[in-house]
Write a protein that binds this DNA or RNA. Structure first.
Ligand SMILES: [Mn+2]
Ligand SMILES: [Mn+2]
Ligand SMILES: [Zn+2]
Ligand SMILES: [Zn+2]
Lengths: 141, 141
DNA sequence: TCGTAAATTGTAACTATTACAAAATAGATA
DNA sequence: TATCTATTTTGTAATAGTTACAATTTACGA
């Protein structure tokens, strides 16, 4: 808990129970949840919680680079991540789990003959995850 | 126009003026437009057009791999592309133009030590485009 | 402890998309 | 060519995710 207080103070953001709940939830549940998933999870123990508070705080924390937001190709909801350092995501087409992939900015060198200035890259990998592959193996036996 | 008729017939889809309009618009305007942009553009000459028709046809054409859909990191609307072969996109943070980038599935080899089976990759590059860079240069003179 | 700027809340509005059912039509068949 | 019917188009209503707003509450510096 002290960790989240420090983080918020470092960015001159007020310490509120709601903010601590959001950070703690994202830190302890590395599932890349949507705003609604965060809301529902925290609301169980804090029934007075408003969804607007989730959106407000998500916004301010993304702006302060305390958390990261991203969106999947085929999904219409934003997802959030406690991990802010550069990494990409792998989504399983069977169980829809989202895994972190520690790979950095791909193929910048291939950009040589484009005259654009690349500053950011965003990417998702999609396929079947280790767990689902193993489940299949067991079934086939 | 004959080209689009062939394409539709190849997929056993009925030839309708609306479908021809959509294909023609996407082919002749490689701007990666949203559903609404396609709708507004075609509606000028075909005022009876319904937005549902746009969505219906976009769906069926994406499913038949006649066009491609994708979504940008920070945008909440789907965008559409006449080009269906593998390529990625570069978006300019100044003018918001979306350019095609002919680069193929990045960094598959780096996936070695993940036990997931990668099937697809989706990615966007972001930065400042050639045009905007040149504009800036002129200004600075 | 108090005062105030900032945060929280509930509600309403908004945007992109999807669902649905009635009317129109493409294209196969006689 | 005329007819038939499955498919397509249309308009409207519903939905999902998010944002705007204003009243109430709270964090925290003085
Ligand atoms: Mn992540
Ligand atoms: Mn493209
Ligand atoms: Zn899986
Ligand atoms: Zn530009």
């Amino acid at each position: 808990m002290e960790k989240y207080i420090k983080e918020l103070k470092a960015h001159k953001l007020k310490i509120t129970p709601q903010r601590l709940d959001i950070l703690s939830f994202l830190d302890k549940n590395r599932i890349h949840p949507s705003a609604d998933e965060i809301y529902k999870a925290i609301k169980i123990n804090s029934p007075a919680l408003s969804k607007t508070t989730i959106y407000n705080n998500i916004d301010v924390m993304v702006k302060n680079n305390i958390i990261k937001s991203f969106r999947f190709m085929d999904s219409n909801e934003l997802r959030f991540d406690y991990k802010t350092t550069e990494h990409y995501h792998f989504i399983c087409r069977k169980c829809k789990s989202i895994y972190d992939v520690d790979i950095s900015l791909p193929y910048l060198e291939k950009f040589e003959h484009y005259m654009h200035k690349v500053e950011e890259f965003y990417g998702d990998y999609k396929g079947v995850c280790e767990n689902c592959l193993n489940k299949k193996k067991l079934k086939n036996k």
